[in-house]
Measured scan of single mutants.
Amino acid sequence: MFKRLMMVALLVIAPLSAATAADQTNPYKLMDEAAQKTFDRLKNEQPQIRANPDYLRTIVDQELLPYVQVKYAGALVLGQYYKSATPAQREAYFAAFREYLKQAYGQALAMYHGQTYQIAPEQPLGDKTIVPIRVTIIDPNGRPPVRLDFQWRKNSQTGNWQAYDMIAEGVSMITTKQNEWGTLLRTKGIDGLTAQLKSISQQKITLEEKK
């Protein structure tokens, strides 16, 4: 169930391209415009997507990853294993993690069937560096609404905000991946996880038929 919630949630996290980005210092504006741009692209490019579902990787690479804190999220997933990894191991892992996100997020976007969304009203940021933004996803086919909290983090150097995690039903996506990959990290280390991520990233994206 959580895996499905995570995939549905990713439908609204794909941010804007650099040329049309919203105010990078306001995570609420980023979330709002990102959702609108993403849904528009999914709707307008269905012919290309249906002809070649792996085209979704391109959308992810162009529109999402430049505005997601990939390395920060990847380091959180590694936890204690990050500090013990060599620079070469980290570089290989982050490259594999990025390719994994292209496949995983692309597969999530393949679930698009006309969903709509509501974003919580903007709250004062103050001096906060981590801000959760509640998004409610509404399914046109009558499924119950899904309420999610996207975690946005302020870059201490640039002042810009980027998304790095999502919490559904009190469970963090980062925590879920830590639990899912924990045994592999304990037995085969970061190299074993890197190899698995490379394998997963090679899987073809498949479209979910409308139910």
Rank of each mutant, 00 (worst) to 15 (best):
Y82M: 04
R50D: 08
E63H: 04
A9I: 12
Q107A: 13
S84G: 13
T158F: 04
A14N: 13
Q157K: 11
K204A: 04
M111V: 12
E91W: 05
Y72H: 03
V70P: 15
T206W: 11
L197T: 12
I190M: 05
P140E: 15
Q24T: 13
V68C: 11
I49G: 06
G192Q: 11
I49D: 05
A95G: 14
Q203K: 14
L184C: 12
L76T: 03
R147D: 00
A168H: 14
A18E: 12
I205L: 15
L78C: 07
A195V: 14
Y164S: 00
A34L: 13
T86N: 10
Q46A: 04
T158G: 08
L197V: 07
G114M: 08
L148I: 00
N155A: 00
P47D: 10
V70K: 08
E169C: 11
Y112Q: 02
P145G: 08
G106E: 04
T25Q: 06
N44Q: 10
T136A: 00
K83D: 02
T25K: 08
K102H: 11
Y72S: 02
K154D: 03
L184D: 06
L42Q: 12
I167N: 04
I137Q: 03
L148S: 02
I59V: 12
L42H: 05
I119G: 08
A73T: 03
K211I: 11
D40H: 09
R147F: 01
F97Y: 15
I137T: 04
I174S: 02
I59T: 08
V60N: 04
L5P: 01
G182N: 12
A88Y: 10
A96Q: 08
L42G: 06
A22M: 08
V171S: 00
K177N: 11
Q24V: 08
R41D: 03
T58F: 09
M6L: 08
Y100I: 14
K211H: 10
A34V: 08
T187L: 14
T58A: 09
S84H: 13
Q36G: 08
Q162K: 06
D61W: 03
S17H: 06
P87Y: 06
W152V: 11
G170L: 01
L30K: 15
K43Q: 07
I59K: 02
A51C: 12
S84P: 11
N160R: 12
A92G: 11
V68S: 07
E99L: 14
W152M: 02
P53K: 11
L76P: 02
D61E: 13
Y164D: 01
N52L: 05
R143V: 05
A51L: 10
I167S: 06
A120S: 14
K154E: 03
A85M: 10
K128T: 12
S201I: 15
K177F: 00
E180K: 04
F39I: 03
S84F: 10
D149S: 02
T38D: 03
L109T: 12
V68H: 09
Q46C: 05
A163Q: 13
K128R: 09
E91P: 04
I49L: 15
G159N: 11
T116L: 15
E63P: 01
L78V: 08
L125P: 10
P144E: 15
T86I: 06
A85Q: 14
A120H: 15
I133C: 03
R50A: 08
K71N: 06
K177T: 14
A51G: 12
L56S: 11
P144V: 07
N44S: 13
I137G: 02
N141M: 11
P124W: 13
A95W: 07
V68L: 15
W181T: 15
S201W: 15
G114F: 04
A22Y: 14
Q62F: 09
G170H: 00
Q107L: 14
I130R: 02
D165F: 00
A18N: 14
Q89R: 06
K43T: 14
A88E: 13
A9P: 02
G182V: 02
Q203S: 09
I49N: 05
K211P: 09
K43Y: 08
A195G: 13
R4I: 15
A75D: 00
Q115C: 08
L64H: 01
E122H: 09
L78E: 00
